[in-house]
Write a protein that binds this DNA or RNA. Structure first.
Lengths: 229, 229
DNA sequence: AATACAACTGACCGACCGGTCAGTCAGTAC
DNA sequence: GTACTGACTGACCGGTCGGTCAGTTGTATT
């Protein structure tokens, strides 16, 4: 019964025809309130009372719809991951030369994270903070899809000879995603570093990121200098 | 009085000569236990009872040495940041050609983070998680020093013409530090991605990172291809 | 020996936590 | 009408939280 309710709430079908009470959106309201609060402050720092107050329902009503605080958290996370997975599939361009594909992926990924900051923060929190196996699997799936997709783009670039063959695509994927995640996480901190001029301009950051990744940072005149191991 | 005690505990001088009781290391034991637990589970998830138990003292004794749980957390964070700042100053090589300097910085930074994972996790948690102004200033100082130091290395490279002049040094710094932070944070997750072969080998990750950053990932125009490690 | 004081403890406090429960209410089926 | 159901609530539960306090112990000073 619990799962039925939650899954019904996940798919945004107008179930008002099925359920009698007008308050069927209650589950959605709870999920929204819980999502916002969890993303803001994390699991432990948010009480069921606060969620109930924010959602405009009684605490007991939340327990009527969700078995426990953990179950609510998992439902919130599952919904967030489903949304992300959905958006993920129409991310970046699948055609065009490799540099454009890579730049588009990087730019769209960062823009998507910033546009859905709350959801992203929730997933990252679950993914990166140690312990807590509560919903790591969901987060890993979203992240893994993202990662695999980027690796594929890179492998295609290698196959077509546009990309150096002597590099590890997974490493580049980690680098690119890591740079984006880091920008997302540290934006508030970077903002008031004197050297940083791009904190308010993610599109510019993405452009510079793709540029550096593609061409490197060494001066082009002397390609002879190379890191010796 | 509170500050005096904490600051005395910060500098690891053998104050056994000054203080009477043999248990003067109590403060250190409390800080160590609290640091470990906070790094493992975060602020909210750790109770004073647990800290007291782990440190082998009574809970009331912790409140004798620290005004509040927040004050204890700040003290832990301050100590962690001081240690990091200290280590930071002997990080990387100050001489040699630019590629070596950059590679050394990246490699040492990551190695240091992994060697002091507990402290690093604590600082990153404070820095990157939203809200919580508890001790952000400490974390920002450590991070800012790190950042400024790397920017300086990059500016020097630009001044000597070894590095492209049309790039933003701060952006490169963010990219490099971000890539390291991300590796540190996501190591456990990356470990069981099929494409990833470097999760257990941070030194190799650092080498690849420096390589890619310096030369880019595009296939070179003239096929003066290098051998891959 | 008496004083003074920091280190330290066990018992305790009010507040709040996640969670339960008896019961109300609106709508549906017959 | 009556029986039934699920959404919903206020009051309440045991337990844990951060924090307090009276009192004990050990040591240095006088």
């Amino acid at each position: 019964m619990f799962n039925t309710l939650v899954n019904a709430a996940m798919t945004p079908e107008p179930s008002s025809a099925i359920h009698p009470r007008a308050g069927t959106d209650t589950v959605a309201r709870i999920l929204k309130a819980a999502g916002t609060l969890f993303a803001e402050s994390g699991f432990d720092a948010v009480s069921m009372n606060t969620i109930a107050e924010r959602a405009g329902v009684s605490k007991a009503n939340i327990f009527h719809h969700f078995d426990s605080k953990d179950a609510l958290y998992v439902a919130v996370l599952r919904q967030a991951c489903e949304n992300s997975t959905e958006r993920l599939q129409r991310l970046g361009s699948d055609t065009g030369p490799f540099p454009q594909r890579l730049a588009a992926f990087a730019q769209h990924l960062l823009a998507d994270m910033l546009d859905h900051a709350e959801v992203s923060r929730l997933i990252l929190r679950e993914l990166l903070l140690g312990g807590a196996q509560r919903g790591r699997e969901f987060a890993e799936k979203v992240f893994g899809d993202n990662f695999a997709r980027l690796v594929e783009i890179l492998r295609a670039g290698q196959a077509r000879g546009e990309l150096r063959a002597d590099i590890d695509p997974a490493m580049i994927a980690a680098l690119l995603i890591g740079a984006n995640v880091f920008f997302f996480e540290a934006q508030e901190v970077l903002r008031h570093f004197r050297d940083v001029t791009f904190a308010q301009d993610p599109a510019r950051y993405s452009r510079m990121l793709a540029d550096v990744l593609l061409d490197g940072i060494l001066a082009p005149n002397d390609p002879a200098q190379r890191l010796s191991e």
